[in-house]
C-alpha cells in the first residue's frame, strides 16, 4: 500500500498501515539494543557461576568510570621486592599482605627474612615476601627509621634507638647505636608500571565484570543519556508488543 493509497483509505486502514510501518522501523532500530540486553541478561543470569563478581574488569573500566588510581603513601624496596602502602594496606610487589597498616619507615633484607617497619609495627616476611609475623612492639614512642649493620636490625626511635631480634621478636632499647656502620633504609620510587599495578590492586574489584554488565544492561554505563536510551528502547519494545498483537489479531484472512 503506497502513501497515496493510504490517503484515500479508511481511518482503520490508515491506522493499520502506520502501525505496521512503525512496528518495522522500531523493530530494526531496537534490534541492536535487544541483542545487547539479551546477551548481557543471559550472562548476568549466570554471573556467580562465571565468577563475574570476583573478576576485575581492568584499568580501562576504571578510566571509563572516571576512577583515578589511589596514591602510594610510602614505598621501600628490599631483596628486589617493592613494599608499598596504599590506602592503609601493605602490598609486596602488588600483592596484598596486610590491612590496617600505617606509613612505612623502612624495609631491610636480613637473611633469611625481610623486616618491614611502620611507625609502630614490624612485618616479618620470607624472602619471597610471604607474611611470617606481624608484631607491634611497645616501643614507648614512634619508630622513625629502620637500619642494619648487616647482621642486626636497628630502629631509630623518637628518643634513642632499639635493636630487634626478628626471630624472638625481642625489642631492646638503647641510647646510642653500637657502631657507626648502620645502613638506614631509604624510600624507593616505584616505576609507572608498579604504580599502576599497586593502584589496580588497591581498587581491586571496585569495577568487576558483574557491575559492568549490569550497567550495560540498564544503560547506566553511559551518563544520563544512557538511561534515557534504555527507557526509549523499553518503550519501543512495549509499543512493538502491543502493535504486534493488534496487527496479528486484525490481519486479513
Amino acid at each position: 500500500m503506497t502513501t497515496q493509497d493510504v490517503q484515500g483509505a479508511t481511518p482503520t486502514t490508515r491506522a493499520r498501515h502506520w502501525a505496521r510501518r512503525t512496528h518495522r522501523v522500531l523493530g530494526v532500530s531496537a534490534a541492536l539494543f535487544l541483542v545487547l540486553i539479551s546477551a548481557s541478561g543471559l550472562v548476568l543470569n549466570h554471573a556467580d557461576a562465571l565468577g563475574l563478581p570476583r573478576s576485575a574488569a581492568g584499568r580501562w573500566a576504571l578510566t571509563l568510570y572516571g576512577i583515578e588510581l589511589p596514591p602510594i603513601d610510602s614505598a621501600f624496596a628490599a631483596n628486589e621486592v617493592l613494599f608499598a602502602t596504599v590506602a592503609d594496606t601493605l602490598y609486596a610487589d602488588g600483592a596484598e599482605i596486610a590491612k590496617g597498616v600505617g606509613r612505612l619507615v623502612g624495609a631491610m633484607a636480613i637473611d633469611p627474612v625481610i623486616v618491614v617497619a611502620t611507625a609502630d609495627e614490624f612485618f616479618i616476611t620470607s624472602s619471597a615476601a610471604e607474611l611470617i609475623e606481624r608484631y607491634a612492639p611497645d616501643a614507648g614512642g614512634l619508630m622513625r627509621a629502620l637500619g642494619t649493620d648487616g647482621q642486626r636490625v636497628f630502629v631509630e626511635l623518637q628518643h634513642g634507638y632499639a635493636e630487634l631480634d626478628p626471630g624472638q621478636m625481642s625489642f631492646v632499647s638503647m641510647d646510642a647505636l653500637p657502631g657507626d656502620n648502620v645502613q638506614w633504609s631509604r624510600p624507593a620510587t616505584p616505576g609507572i608500571e608498579q604504580v599502576e599495578q599497586l593502584g589496580a590492586a588497591a581498587l581491586g574489584l571496585a569495577i568487576n565484570w558483574e557491575r559492568l554488565l549490569l550497567d550495560l544492561h540498564s544503560g547506566r554505563i553511559l551518563p544520563a543519556a544512557g538511561r534515557y536510551l534504555a527507557d526509549i528502547t523499553a518503550l519501543a519494545l512495549l509499543y512493538m508488543c502491543f502493535s504486534g498483537i493488534v496487527l496479528w489479531t486484525r490481519r486479513r484472512p
Binding site: 592503609d88 599482605i97 596486610a98 590491612k99 590496617g100 620470607s126 610471604e130 607474611l131 611470617i132 609475623e133 606481624r134 608484631y135 621478636m169
Partner: peptide, 27 residues
C-alpha cells in the same frame, strides 16, 4: 591465616593469643 606463624605467650596451663580479624574492612 594471613601469617605463617602466630606468636603466643604462656605460663603453665595458660596461653595468651593476640589475633587480628577483619570486621567489615579493617582488622
Amino acid at each position: 591465616p594471613e601469617m605463617l606463624r602466630i606468636r603466643y605467650w604462656h605460663d603453665g596451663a595458660r596461653t595468651a593469643w593476640i589475633l587480628d580479624e577483619i570486621g567489615k574492612e579493617q582488622p
